[in-house]
Amino acid sequence: MTRLVFALWATLAALILGGCAPSQPFVGKTEVDALAEAISDLGPQVDPAEAQRAASIAYAYSKQLKQDWNVTDPAIIHNAKVINGFREKGLCNDWAQAMTQRLQQENFRTLDLHWATSPPTAFRIIHHSALISAKGDSMYDGIILDPWRNSGALFWAPVREDTRYNWRPRLDVRAELMSGENPF
């Protein structure tokens, strides 16, 4: 009887713990597919194959850059390492530039790429990110592709839903900062 009770408890524990363990390949596939679907949903003119390719590249390239740049800490700590010369790359503008350039290599016919910037505020430093939209659409109708925020794990969201930052065209923010309009 004791062996039977022990076996039942061991089986129950294995089932519970096994059910709690994340399945990485499934999670990664689901995330890529979710982003591909969101990109496809940007408009009827978006080619689903291009959306899938962009999503796959965004996830894979984020992971590759994390490894290439030896990102092992939260983003702000990694920034300090870059600024102090302990790491070569990994500031948000490095991520934005690399992601934008990599996706531009695909010569998408139905998608546009943008470089978005959130100007500094009293509580936040300036932040840059790549952004993807349907061909001809405003960046405000696109999706932020931000691997910096989670240290190489891609964060994405529709621009209008990403309330953590005040995304604007990079050149507009640059002009504002150069003119002295932004006190930060």
Rank of each mutant, 00 (worst) to 15 (best):
G136Y: 00
S179W: 09
H127S: 03
D41W: 08
T11E: 13
K89N: 04
I76A: 12
L145P: 05
Y140T: 06
F6C: 01
W156V: 06
I144G: 05
L111P: 04
A80S: 08
A157N: 05
D141S: 11
T100W: 15
R53T: 06
A36Q: 11
K66D: 02
K89F: 07
T11D: 13
T72V: 14
A134D: 00
A14F: 14
S151R: 02
N150M: 10
T30L: 14
A55R: 12
R124P: 01
N182G: 03
L35Y: 10
A14V: 14
C92W: 09
R174E: 02
P119Q: 09
Q104R: 11
T163V: 06
L12P: 05
Y165C: 05
T117S: 12
L171E: 03
V173G: 07
N70S: 11
N84Y: 11
N70W: 09
R87L: 05
D33F: 15
M139I: 00
I143Y: 10
T163K: 07
L113D: 00
R87Q: 03
I77G: 02
N166D: 15
N84C: 13
Q105I: 01
T121G: 06
G142N: 08
R109A: 02
H127T: 02
F26P: 08
R124H: 05
F86K: 12
A122W: 14
G18K: 14
T11W: 13
L8K: 08
L12Y: 08
S56H: 13
R160H: 01
Q101S: 14
N166T: 15
E176C: 15
L154C: 12
N84V: 09
H78Q: 07
N70D: 09
W95A: 00
A13W: 13
A153Y: 12
P119K: 07
S23L: 13
I125Y: 07
S23C: 11
R174L: 04
I57Y: 12
P74G: 06
L17S: 12
A49Y: 04
A7W: 02
E31A: 15
F123R: 08
S133A: 10
K135Q: 00
T11Q: 14
T110D: 00
A51F: 12
L17F: 15
A54H: 08
D162N: 03
Q105L: 04
S56W: 13
A60F: 02
Y59K: 13
Q105G: 04
D33R: 14
D47T: 04
E176W: 14
T110I: 00
D141I: 03
N93T: 09
E181C: 07
